[in-house]
C-alpha cells in the first residue's frame, strides 16, 4: 500500500498534513501568516465552531444531521441576553454574571431534545425536522427579543472577559473551554458504554436494537447534547462578540459546523468519525478563514469555500469508503 493510501487510511494524519501544507503555502506567500500572533487569531476563530462541531459530530455519527443548531445557538444566547438586559426589571436585582452559562445550556438542551423527540418518536427524517426547527427557533429568537438586539453594555464584563483574559500564554479562557469540551466528548464517545452505542447505532441502525441497545434513549441523548453544546456556543457568542442579534447570531453556523465535521473525516453515512479528526477539521477551517484576508480574498467568499469544502470532503469520504470495501474484498479472496 502506497504512502498516500496509508495517509488516507488514517484520515487524521491526512488532515494534519493538509493543515501543515496549507499553512506553509500561505506562509511562503505572506510570511506574517506563520507568526504567534496569527496563531492566536486562528485559535480565536475556532472555539464556537469547535463546540458546535462536537455535538454535530455525535449526531452525524448516529446517522442523523442537525440543521437547527444555528437557530438553537441564537435562542439560547438571546434568552441569556434578555435575562442580563431585564434582570433588574423582572427580578429586582442583577443576576450574577455566570447565570447565563447554565441557562443557555439548559435552553439549548431542551430545544435539542425537542428535535430528538420529533425525529425518534415520530420516525421522521432528521434533515426535514431540523429544517423546520431551523425556521421555528429563529422565529422564537425574534419573538422573545421583540426583534431587538441586546447591546454591548448589557453583557456582563466578566462574561466578555472569558474571551479576552487569559489564564496562561495569552490564550483566552474560551479556547480552553472549547478544548475541554473536545476532551470530554472524546472520553464520552470512546470510554463510556453510551458513547460506543452512538457508533453502533450509526454503523447499523437495524442491528443496534437487536444487540439490546436502547436506540430511542441514545438518539434523544445525542440530540440533547447537540442542543446543549449549541447553547454553550450561544453564551460564548455573547462573550466573544459582546452582543446578541436576533437575525445574525448563529445564522449560517450550521454550515460552518457541518463543513468542519465532514472535512474532519466524519462519514455522513454514520458510524465513522473521531474527535481528533473533527478538531483538526475545525482548525483547518480556522486556518482558511484566517488566511483569506491576508491573501486579499474578500470575506464574502467564505460561504462558497465552506460549500466547496463540504463537497470535497464528501468526495474524499466516498473514495476512502470504496478503498475500504475493495481491501475487504481482497482480504476475503
Amino acid at each position: 500500500m502506497s504512502f498516500l493510501a496509508t495517509l488516507f487510511r488514517r484520515r487524521e494524519a491526512g488532515i494534519a498534513v493538509m493543515i501543515v501544507l496549507f499553512c506553509l503555502a500561505v506562509g511562503i506567500a505572506k510570511p506574517q501568516f506563520l507568526t504567534l500572533d496569527q496563531m492566536r487569531i486562528i485559535l480565536l476563530l475556532t472555539p464556537l465552531i469547535m463546540i458546535g462541531a462536537m455535538g454535530q459530530m455525535m449526531v452525524i455519527v448516529a446517522r442523523h444531521v442537525d440543521l437547527s443548531i444555528g437557530s438553537t445557538l441564537g435562542v439560547s444566547a438571546m434568552v441569556s441576553g434578555m435575562l442580563y438586559r431585564f434582570d433588574a426589571t423582572w427580578l429586582g436585582f442583577d443576576v450574577p454574571w455566570w447565570t447565563g452559562i447554565p441557562l443557555s445550556i439548559v435552553v439549548g438542551a431542551l430545544l435539542g431534545l425537542a428535535n430528538g423527540v420529533l425525529i425518534q418518536l415520530f420516525r421522521l427524517p432528521a434533515i426535514i425536522v431540523t429544517l423546520g426547527t431551523l425556521s421555528l427557533y429563529r422565529g422564537l429568537t425574534f419573538i422573545i427579543s421583540n426583534a431587538k438586539q441586546i447591546d454591548r453594555q448589557w453583557i456582563p464584563s466578566e462574561l466578555k472577559g472569558l474571551s479576552q483574559t487569559s489564564p496562561i500564554l495569552g490564550i483566552p479562557w474560551i479556547i480552553f473551554i472549547a478544548f475541554g469540551i473536545a476532551i470530554l466528548t472524546y472520553v464520552f464517545l470512546m470510554h463510556t458504554r453510551l458513547g460506543r452505542q452512538v457508533y453502533a447505532i450509526g454503523s447499523n441502525p437495524v442491528a443496534a436494537p437487536l444487540r439490546g441497545i436502547n436506540v430511542t434513549q441514545v438518539t434523544l441523548l445525542v440530540f440533547t447534547l447537540s442542543g446543549a453544546l449549541a447553547g454553550l456556543a450561544g453564551i460564548l457568542y455573547a462573550s466573544r462578540w459582546g452582543f446578541v442579534n436576533p437575525s445574525n447570531t448563529g445564522s449560517g453556523f450550521e454550515f460552518q459546523v457541518i463543513a468542519a465535521v465532514v472535512i474532519g473525516g466524519v462519514s455522513i453515512n454514520g458510524g465513522v468519525g473521531t474527535v481528533l479528526g473533527t478538531v483538526l477539521g475545525v482548525l483547518l477551517l480556522g486556518c482558511v478563514a484566517a488566511a483569506l484576508p491576508l491573501l486579499g480574498i474578500p470575506g464574502t467568499s467564505q460561504a462558497a469555500i465552506y460549500g466547496a469544502v463540504i463537497l470535497i470532503a464528501l468526495l474524499i469520504d466516498r473514495t476512502v469508503r470504496q478503498q475500504g470495501i475493495a481491501s475487504l474484498r481482497r482480504a476475503r479472496a
Binding site: 440543521l67 465552506y306 464528501l314
Partner: peptide
Amino acid sequence: IIVTIGTLTLYRG
C-alpha cells in the same frame, strides 16, 4: 440531502 446542503452553501456563496 447532504450533497444539496453542500451545493446550497456553495451556490449562495
